[in-house]
């Protein structure tokens, strides 16, 4: 425990075991992005998975929509301290997208329309832990929140859930992404409060 701030009381304690350390609960849905919001027309949208071995798997919007859909309800944790509980999404599990992908890669780099990138171990995308989502709260996903489609990896800080996702590159070596090269933690586990490099 650090120094005590004189006369600071804070909000009534929630004692919420679903709230990671250093986070507070919000009920709206703040927007954080590093640049302008890209606009991606659906007839030009595509999503790819490129393997380290040079194979490319590609889906058009229609093909992506035809895949089995899931509706995960998850808690979100943003590195800027807010958390939001019980958010409802619709999209395709990465397990479905990776079904026919063969690769020995251990790392993944998600890349987006607009140039954003973020890296994570491949295993963090598998076994029901990650989705490409295109609906939020029953509505099509708004551009400011990453529409037409974004990655959703709720067990890591939200910057890992790349908005405006364009593809995932599988890599044999870890390749730090946008925030990971700008001082943020390489992995970003909210429960271990891995906000910044060295945390």
């Amino acid at each position: 425990m650090g120094i005590i701030s004189r006369a600071f009381q804070g909000r009534p304690r929630d004692h919420d075991e679903n709230l990671p350390p250093g986070q507070y609960l919000v009920h709206d849905f703040p927007v954080l992005s590093a640049g302008p919001t890209p606009r991606v027309p659906l007839d030009r949208w595509e999503f790819s998975i490129d393997t380290a071995e040079g194979e490319v798997h590609r889906w058009s919007w229609q093909e992506f929509q035809a895949l089995p859909q899931e509706t995960p309800t998850v808690d979100l944790h943003c590195v800027t301290k807010w958390s939001k509980f019980g958010t409802g999404w619709k999209g395709v599990s990465l397990d479905v997208l990776m079904e026919d992908v063969e690769s020995a890669a251990e790392y993944a780099l998600a890349y987006s329309y607009g140039g954003y990138t973020t890296n994570l171990p491949l295993e963090d995308l598998l076994d029901g832990k990650a989705w490409i989502v295109h609906e939020y709260d029953g509505e099509e996903l708004a551009p400011a929140h990453g529409g037409p489609a974004r990655l959703l990896v709720p067990h890591l800080y939200l910057w890992k859930s790349a908005k405006w996702i364009k593809g995932i590159r599988l890599l044999n070596e870890d390749w730090p992404g946008f925030w990971e090269t700008a001082g943020y933690h390489n992995y970003g586990d909210p429960w271990r409060e891995q906000r910044y490099q060295g945390d």
Partner: peptide, 23 residues
């Protein structure tokens, strides 16, 4: 503002943004 800048012809890659949520 970012949308207006792009409509005017500014390169999106030259526009850095920082947003505050309502929260």
């Amino acid at each position: 503002t970012a949308d207006l800048l792009i409509e005017l012809g500014h390169d999106p890659a030259k526009i850095k943004t920082e947003r505050f949520g309502p929260t």
